[in-house]
Design a protein around this nucleic acid. Structure first.
Length: 584
RNA sequence: GCGCUCGUAGCUCAGUGGAUAGAGCAACCGCCUUCUAAGCGGUCGGUCGUUGGUUCGAUCCCAACCGGGCGCGCCA
């Protein structure tokens, strides 16, 4: 099903060619939502931009386009306004019939893409022996949202958790644990993750200050990489321990992804060195094997290398990332690869992308994208820490959000003297708390830094998840009150009379445009904005238009609008990874 | 020093090469005998960091500068 914008664009492009010639077949109709409701629903800016090339005034061009443009089934006669805008006002009969089509479709009229792609979304990626913190929150929920949208549109998505399960940190951790807690290296669950994290910190401190320890830790890395059984066993135990803890968070957040950590690519690293050597890109410098980068200089102004193999023969994450990139193209047959990490890694991605390109590993047909997101900051504008200077655990953050939602809910229930079961309260608090956290994050522009505040996250008014869920709850309330069940895919004739009905109807028909935008820009906040506006428009409709008390034909039509709104909210929120509630 | 990024209402942030730049929060004023008022309506609030340039038209593109954040050889 086409959105009104799709329909208009198609007609407009035809008219453009008919009026001004076939060389404009690919010209952008510049059709956008009207800048002001008084101008109608959509406007074309094309006449203004074509004026110079055509040697005519914008208004003259607009007139010629209009003589060729037949949109009488879609909108009122278009008008030329101002310097040469063409304004379009959709007909309510057209809006009604579009909504009727939407009602009959479980996908709400949103088509799958014609050519599905194999898409790798690389996100979350915590590190073994460290706890997940707020930094992982953004990657996890933004990545999940992007994956959900792509999946819904019919793409074949591989959600990969590129966890940090390999590298020098294991040398120092195992070495340290041999000293202070050897049973952790031979027995399952000898430690909990919290202990493991503090041991990790102590090991790091020791590593940084004790050269002897450093040397033993390096040897331990070699033992591990060469597959010594006791080292391998210890490594596996540490990974299993961490994995269980990560899974608790993923369960809480309703996130599903496939673990394929850095260690997976270990056997492929030496081939990277060989192939870069063959390609003539690898240069030995100060004992390390490097590729010198185009367009990057270090602090001294000298060309900057990307280190592929360290002077101690060890590999860096750049090497792993190159191996992973090749694997995803050659073995996973990815058409598009999306990396969701903090913006601080932008240079790293640009750099290893450059090396991969120069090595000829990225076919023209494959699109690789770093999707950066801003820092999580405290009130002071610095990277978020606890009062004592530690990182905030993601588990604690989520628990606190749920507790906050529960407190709000209980206050309200008490005030309204409602009888509610503990099960109801716990479930609603869970959904509201987790949703609030996710929505607060997703509704920000991804690239901006993100000021973290419990108050803000848990606020239950304004542009928040609870506001959107409440709009959904209101529809369910109407159904309960009217003792109605949802009409399963039946088509009701939709009559749009009140202004709030028309406004709601126009908005409902724009979801497909928004989703197309999101797959292109990978900016979840655009979907949030759409859903927030939908909730506002629904609430205005709800305020102005009685549903259950309306005349029969109007009542059916309004019920259908309610149902379409609820379905759109539920679908849209599900693409954000957010659940709905029937009551709250 | 170099690079990336951000700078929009008191606060938090959307937004776009096009007509008069938008929300939310906060403040103030209204609206519950009527589908959950976690709502709706209204008022107040702006030299879109500064200065130039490109353009018929710039908050948006380009340059310089100012300010915040982040990054820059063997961590990831």
């Amino acid at each position: 099903m086409n959105s009104p914008l799709d329909d208009l664009k198609a007609r407009f492009s035809q008219a453009l060619v008919a009026a001004l010639g076939s060389e404009l077949a690919n010209a952008d109709p510049l059709l956008v939502s009207a800048s002001n409701p008084k101008f109608g629903d959509y406007q074309s800016n094309a006449p203004l931009s074509l004026a110079k090339a055509c040697g005519q005034s914008p208004r003259a061009i607009a007139e010629q386009i209009l003589t060729q443009l037949d949109v009488s089934d879609l909108c009122d006669p278009p008008t030329i306004a101002g310097p040469g805008f063409i304004n379009f006002q959709l007909k309510s009969s057209y809006l009604g019939s579009q909504l009727e089509q939407m009602q009959a479709d479980p996908r709400l009229g949103i088509a799958c893409v014609a050519t599905p792609q194999r898409v790798v979304v690389d996100f979350s990626s915590p590190n073994i022996a460290k706890e997940m913190h707020v930094g992982h929150l953004r990657s996890t929920i933004i990545g999940d949202c992007i994956a959900r949208v792509l999946e819904f549109l019919g793409h074949d998505v591989l959600r990969l958790n590129h966890i940090g399960d390999w590298g020098t940190q294991f040398g120092m951790l195992i070495t340290y644990l041999r000293e202070v807690c050897p049973q952790a290296l031979t027995t399952s669950d000898a430690l909990d993750l919290g202990d493991l994290v503090s041991f990790y910190k102590q090991a790091k401190q020791r590593f940084d200050s004790d050269p002897g320890f450093q040397e033993i830790a390096r040897q331990e890395v070699v033992r591990l990489q060469s597959g010594q059984p006791d080292s391998l066993k210890a490594w596996q135990l540490l990974c299993a321990q961490s994995r269980r803890e990560f899974q608790k968070i993923y369960d809480l957040l309703d996130i599903h992804l496939i673990e394929r950590g850095e260690s997976f690519y270990n056997p492929l690293l030496s081939a990277i060195v060989e192939d870069l050597t063959t390609a003539g890109l690898l240069v030995e410098d100060q004992g390390a094997k490097c590729v010198f980068l185009d367009g990057y200089t270090n602090k001294n102004g000298d060309p900057q290398p990307l280190i592929i193999q360290k002077s101690d023969r060890g590999f860096n994450y750049a090497t792993t990332d190159l191996a992973a990139l090749r694997y995803r193209i050659q073995q996973d047959h990815a058409d598009r690869i999306i990396y969701v990490t903090d913006a601080g890694q932008a240079a790293h991605f640009a750099q290893f992308f450059q090396v991969a390109r120069r090595a000829g590993w990225i076919p023209e047909s494959v699109q690789i994208t770093h999707v950066p997101f801003g820092l999580v900051q405290g009130d002071d504008g610095k990277k978020l820490k606890t009062r004592s200077g530690d990182t905030i655990r993601l588990q604690d953050l989520l628990d606190q959000a749920i507790a906050g939602a529960k407190a709000d809910l209980e206050t309200r229930i008490k005030k309204e003297d409602r009888p509610e079961t503990p099960e109801f309260i716990d479930h609603a608090a869970h959904v509201l708390g987790i949703s609030a956290v996710k929505y607060a994050d997703l509704s920000q522009n991804r690239t901006s830094n993100y000021v973290f505040s419990y108050d803000k996250m848990l606020a239950l008014q304004g542009n928040t998840a609870p506001y959107l869920i409440y709009a959904y709850v209101r529809v369910q309330g109407i159904y309960r009150k009217g003792q109605l069940t949802e009409q399963a895919s039946t088509t009701t004739q939709i009559l749009l009379q009140e202004e709030t009905e028309l406004v709601l109807a126009r908005h409902l028909l724009q979801l497909t445009d928004v989703l197309n935008l999101v797959t292109h820009d990978l900016l979840p906040n655009r979907l949030c904005q759409y859903l927030f506006e939908l909730s506002q428009k629904f609430n205005q409709f709800y305020d102005r238009c009685p549903v259950l008390q309306a005349e029969p034909s109007q009542r059916q039509s309004r019920l259908a609008l309610c149902q379409l709104t609820a379905h759109t909210l539920k679908l849209g929120l599900s693409l954000l990874g957010i659940q709905v509630l029937d009551r709250m």
